[in-house]
Amino acid sequence: MADALLIIDMQAGLYDGPQRPFERERLLDTINQLIKRARAANKPIFVARHTGPEGSPIAAGSPLWQVWHGLEVDEHRDHLFNKTRPSCFLGTDLARQLRAAQVDELVIVGMKTQFCIDTTCRVAVELGFSVVLPEDGHTCMDTPALKAEAIIEHHNGTLAGAFVKRISARDLWRSSDHATH
């Protein structure tokens, strides 16, 4: 079983926007640690950028569309791709790329919990992939109805079992055991 890291929407417009993501510094550190461990274990890394239409604040190439500068991705080594929907699969060739790399399990991290994380987890399972969701590897912002912490916990609980294997990021790709979680 081959696995890969999928990082969703860690972009300047979301990460550093007017509404700050819950525990954003901790999340950035967690994802950067996963990037380092994925590289050490020779796991492919896929990075999704949410892309708006031409003229929007997150149009391709705009400052807010850029991957957050503190995220340790390598544009020459990692697989960056653009998406226009909450699903990382709809309108992209991600499924084809994963199958070509013989990936059957995805570790999904990034933003926003209730939109792109949730949708991508569910669609990945529908497409036949196994999904690992680090419970501390995704975030969002407060909404008028719920605080971000409650949204994250709700989705961790709702997705666990039926859609994802819920674990702690610290249990992934440890140096003593690269082959398993």
Rank of each mutant, 00 (worst) to 15 (best):
D3F: 01
A4N: 01
L5F: 00
L5T: 01
L5V: 01
L5K: 01
I7A: 02
I8F: 06
I8Y: 05
D9H: 02
D9K: 02
D9S: 02
M10A: 00
G13D: 04
L14E: 04
L14S: 06
L14Y: 09
L14W: 07
Y15W: 12
D16Q: 11
P18T: 07
P18Q: 09
Q19V: 10
Q19L: 14
F22V: 07
F22A: 06
E23P: 06
E23F: 11
E23M: 12
R24D: 04
E25V: 14
D29C: 10
D29I: 07
T30E: 11
Q33P: 01
R37V: 02
A38K: 04
A38W: 03
R39S: 08
A40E: 14
A41S: 09
P44W: 06
P44F: 07
F46R: 01
A48R: 00
R49Y: 03
R49Q: 15
H50Y: 13
G52D: 13
P53C: 06
P53H: 08
P53W: 05
E54V: 11
P57F: 15
I58H: 00
I58F: 03
I58T: 05
A60C: 10
A60Y: 12
A60D: 12
G61V: 11
S62D: 09
S62V: 10
S62R: 07
L64M: 12
L64C: 07
W65F: 08
Q66C: 05
V67I: 12
G70T: 05
E72I: 02
V73F: 02
R77T: 06
L80S: 03
N82A: 12
R85T: 11
P86W: 07
P86V: 08
P86D: 09
S87Q: 03
F89Y: 15
L90I: 13
G91F: 05
G91M: 08
D93P: 05
L98P: 00
A100I: 08
A100Y: 08
Q102W: 06
L106A: 03
V107W: 00
V107G: 00
V109I: 02
M111I: 08
T113M: 11
Q114H: 12
F115G: 14
T119I: 11
T120V: 14
T120W: 10
R122V: 13
V123R: 14
E126W: 14
L127Q: 14
L127D: 08
G128K: 04
V131A: 12
V132E: 08
P134K: 14
E135K: 15
G137R: 06
H138P: 01
H138S: 05
T139W: 04
C140Q: 07
D142G: 04
P144C: 04
P144S: 03
P144A: 02
A145N: 13
L146I: 13
L146H: 14
K147G: 07
A148R: 10
I151T: 05
I151W: 02
I152Q: 06
E153N: 13
H154G: 15
H154F: 15
H155N: 12
H155Q: 08
N156A: 12
G157Q: 15
L159I: 09
A160L: 11
A162T: 15
A162F: 15
F163P: 13
F163Y: 15
K165I: 13
R166D: 05
I167R: 01
I167D: 01
S168D: 11
S168C: 11
A169E: 05
R170G: 03
D171F: 08
L172N: 04
L172P: 04
R174W: 12
R174D: 05
S175I: 13
D177P: 07
H181K: 12
